[in-house]
Amino acid sequence: MAKITFDGIEVEVEDGTTILNAARKIGGKVVPPAMCYYTPLKGSGGKCRVCLVKVTQGSAKDPRPMPKLVASCVTPVQDGMVVENTLSPQVLEARKGVVEMLLINHPLDCPVCDQAGECDLQNLSYEHGTSGTRYEEERRTFDRQDIGPLIQLHMNRCILCYRCVYTADQITDKRVHGVLGRGDAAEIGTYIENVIDNDFSGNVIDVCPVGALTDKTFRFKNRVWFTKPVDAHRDCPKCSGKVVLWNRGSDVLRVTARKNEYGEVVEFICNECRFEKKEMSDWIIDGPRHIARASVISANHYELPVVNPQIIADLPESTTKELHLIPRPI
């Protein structure tokens, strides 16, 4: 076990844990953002640089600070390590810089992007970005590429996190897409026109942090904040069958895997569940999906009734927590 101090908070974790996961054990506001790291995908991380933190003390044995900011998602903790994230102006400044880099060539097409409302890059720029741009140059664009009837690829939106490549490598049997080219001309693609199609290919949609890979069967159907997410399951011979249905009325508009609070898929699902089971009768409903209160999705859907504060105060804490009830003035 290793004990570290993260933003002034002590936490004890297994040896070999990354700084990011140690921070996630603390939870809340101190956790660095992550755009490329993805716990279920081996080898992911280290690329986007938004999780940079400052190590002010390397370890109890060797207390020297690390000379540069480090990517918290791939740097293992050492016993006695002291790390600064939100407490370090240098880190916040660097992060602002990285966010700017991610945005300079990103199209401003959120109004027509299916990912809008559940986009990690939107959230990141809201938290760490600036409202203006200093980039006067023309934005980089790529030729459109068709990768089949199920998945829509918008390369212009891609931030090259490599998650979809790891996904195809690790949970499908034959990878047909990858990162082609080099530098800022690097792109996700199949090189020769090819269809990404196998039983689990749809998962690349869920792991994509931006709108580069979206569900073609949901394309332009609705804005995510108008849909109502519910947990559901079915008996599936190929996967766990545990999904989230994104409904409008009783129409199932979209099916995705369930994700944890860091946007990571808990259990990957098969294409049959994702693309073919679009009837309510296909599913057994488990209950409403809990969406973070800060999300635009819950802002529209779980509008709280105006409740007498006294009533909330009388409820058991478990209930108020479960229902995200907060007292509001009458």
């Binding site: 810089g97 991610l102 300079i104 060539n105 990162v179 530098g183």
Partner: peptide, 18 residues
């Protein structure tokens, strides 16, 4: 350096071109 950046991490991929 713009030509030779591997494109893996964002500050170098985007910044060298900028």
């Amino acid at each position: 350096y713009h030509h030779e950046s591997c494109g893996q991490c964002s500050p170098c991929r985007e910044g060298t071109g900028w």
